[in-house]
Computed example of a mutant assay.
Amino acid sequence: MQSPQAILFDLDGTLADTAPDLAAAINSMRLKRQLPPVQYNSLRPFASAGARGLIGAGFNITPEQPEYEAMRVEFLNQYESAIAVHSNLFRHVPDLLRGLDVMEIPWGIVTNKAMRFTKPLIPLLDLQESRCVISGDTTAHAKPHPAPLLEAARQLGIRAENCWYIGDDLRDIQAAEAAGMTSIAAAWGYCGATEPKHWKADAIIDSPLELLELVRAKHLQTAGS
């Protein structure tokens, strides 16, 4: 692993704990159908998997089923109406971002969340200092395709191989590998159905401060070489 010239982050489950509002949207849909709410801990692991994962967890419905598309639209509308009621940055993420700023390492966001949601959410989470925000519909492809990560590198003016990408889902690691970036698994996030140790990431970190220490160590190593 070489010292990064830029750091790119996934949003949901990496920088921000958005699961409470995503889970609330599912349970609002269940309430309308006179169904009992799903336990939050059962929905949380699917928060990085978008509508597909959450609708699957909340209703056991897959995209192949005829009712899925209408439920997807309903879910997105419900989420949009209460997008940042309980969402917050994970603990120590502000410290991490301030530390990168001190080291003059630019950072950006690459998420599969559509711009419809990222545009209002980023300022509400106080992430507007991000040097780029690549949403799920910014390019023709979403992660795990490398196109969003490559677009972020292009916007930053930094070669992809000089970027680190941090995410809490297997798709993030796959996208980073396909883009030629250093891949780092954020084990504090939602992580989905498989454990990060199985993702073949270049590194696994347990906290934002651990990432900051890793960046500092690589930065000092490069400066001293």
Rank of each mutant, 00 (worst) to 15 (best):
M1D: 07
Q2I: 13
Q2W: 14
S3R: 06
Q5F: 13
I7R: 10
F9Y: 09
D10E: 12
D12K: 13
G13E: 04
A16D: 08
A23V: 02
A25K: 01
M29F: 01
R30W: 00
R30E: 00
L31G: 07
Q34S: 14
L35R: 10
P45C: 04
G56T: 07
G56K: 07
F59C: 00
F59S: 00
N60P: 01
N60M: 02
P63L: 06
Q65K: 10
Y68W: 15
Y68K: 01
Y68I: 03
V73R: 09
F75Q: 07
Q78V: 10
E80W: 03
E80T: 13
V85Y: 02
S87L: 03
N88E: 15
L89T: 04
L100S: 05
V102N: 11
I105M: 03
W107G: 05
M115P: 06
R116F: 09
F117Y: 10
L121E: 11
L124S: 14
D126L: 09
D126T: 12
Q128Y: 07
R131F: 09
I134G: 04
D137W: 12
T138I: 03
T139Y: 05
A140I: 09
K143W: 05
K143G: 03
P148A: 06
L149M: 07
E151K: 15
E151W: 10
A160C: 05
A160H: 08
W164I: 08
D169I: 00
Q174G: 01
Q174R: 12
A175R: 08
A176S: 10
A179T: 06
G180A: 14
A187K: 11
W188Y: 08
W188P: 04
G192V: 09
A193S: 14
W199A: 03
A203G: 03
D206K: 11
L212S: 06
V215Q: 08
A217K: 13
A217P: 02
L220G: 03
A223E: 12
S225D: 13
